[in-house]
Amino acid sequence: MKRIQIISSSNCKNCELLYQVVSKIVEAKNIQASVEKVVDIKEVLKYGVMTTPLLVVDGKLKHYGSPIPAPQKIEELLMED
């Protein structure tokens, strides 16, 4: 079971968009994973980046900043180890 986190420092449009796209992909592709939204500036800084949203899978940073990647690319990011 994977642990997917969408991390941001505030509730913004791009973060919400990424959360929705990821949730949709997880559901459509039947990926065994939990998807959670984390709004915490300290979590953002822990990964050493200054742009949000962050896509983190099992503690590994897969993407940060906007624009968010195309759905196909996000799917690849979720699948890879």
Binding site: S9, I41, M50, T52
Partner: peptide, 10 residues
Amino acid sequence: PFCSCSAVPM
């Protein structure tokens, strides 16, 4: 590039 939602971490 800038997104206002990143203003704080920036």
